[in-house]
């Protein structure tokens, strides 16, 4: 049984080079998902090396960048929660970050990790979709609504590294996470909504975090009831260990109604 090599790049440039040249390499940031899978040996294919990008200064921080708010891919949720800039420009992301896991997970979890893992239940992902965030990599920018291509599949090339996420400013987003308990819960439904422009983004109701296009179209027309009706057809929920398709469908409609009544 082979051991997995630990690669420790000295800067982002070094990381990009190592990632491109090392076969079977996986980037490691906070480790909240990857370390579990590494230890249980459930990753297919089994990685031969991990690339520790947690400490890279270039991937940390919250800052303004050409009219957008930019958050480093390896910045922790705690870092986002503590950032004044994040509070001012992406308050829904800050509030959502506080619902992820608990202190231990918030201290290690990152936007880059949540994106790369691409779980349909990734808690920040509907928030990113509602903000029309842009995923920045070592070579390009990817609009968030083109990022998720299938169950745990993304538009990233095999050797492409996420470096930051950018958010447009001045958008009002509200959200609600429905989990089984108040902390340390993987969501059953996670929804983020923006009125203008109309964005209704939902996690845990399909194989990818998705935008409910039918409901968005209705909302764009100002048809709230139409949006609530349409959202049931926009999603593809399943029965699993956490919940049922029926529950997810009902709650998706209920949560949308609630979010649109306060928003």
């Amino acid at each position: 049984m082979h051991e997995v090599t630990f690669l420790c790049p000295k800067d982002l440039q070094d990381a990009v080079r190592l990632y491109r040249t090392t076969p079977g390499c996986r980037p490691l940031a906070g480790g909240t998902d990857l370390m579990v899978m590494l230890h249980a040996r459930t990753l297919r294919p089994q990685p031969r090396a991990v690339l520790d990008i947690w400490s890279l200064a270039e991937l940390k921080g919250v800052r303004r960048h050409s009219g957008m708010l930019e958050i480093g891919a390896a910045e922790s949720y705690t870092g986002i929660i503590r950032s004044r800039e994040a509070h001012r420009h992406v308050p829904a992301l800050v509030a959502a970050a506080r619902t992820i896991g608990a202190a231990q997970i918030q201290n290690r979890g990152t936007l880059g990790g949540n994106l790369a893992n691409a779980s349909p239940a990734g808690d920040t992902l509907p928030i990113l979709l509602a903000y029309d965030a842009v995923v920045v990599t070592d070579r390009r920018s990817i609009p968030i609504d083109q990022f998720f291509t299938g169950y745990r599949k993304t538009a990233l090339q095999p050797d492409e590294l996420i470096t930051a996420v950018r958010f447009p400013q001045g958008r009002d987003v509200v959200f609600r996470k429905v989990g089984t308990r108040a902390a340390q819960a993987i969501s059953k439904v996670m929804m983020a909504v923006s009125r203008k422009p109309a964005r209704i983004a939902i996690g845990s109701v399909a194989e990818v975090p998705l935008r409910a296009r039918g409901a968005e179209a209705a909302l764009e027309r100002g048809d709230v009831d139409g949006a609530i009706a349409a959202v049931a057809d926009d999603i593809r929920p399943i029965d699993d260990v956490r919940s049922t398709a029926d529950y997810r469908r009902t709650v998706t409609q209920n949560v949308l109604r609630e979010l649109l009544s306060v928003g």
């Binding site: 608990a102 089984t180 260990v241």
Partner: peptide, 27 residues
């Protein structure tokens, strides 16, 4: 309230702490 075990083929589906949930301090 929340401690649920679903069965599948005679085994428990909730066989990890990520799926068998007990109350946290917040609950």
């Amino acid at each position: 309230t929340i401690e649920e075990i679903k069965m599948q083929d005679g085994g428990y589906q909730n066989d990890r702490l990520a799926t068998y949930l007990i109350p946290t301090a917040l609950d």
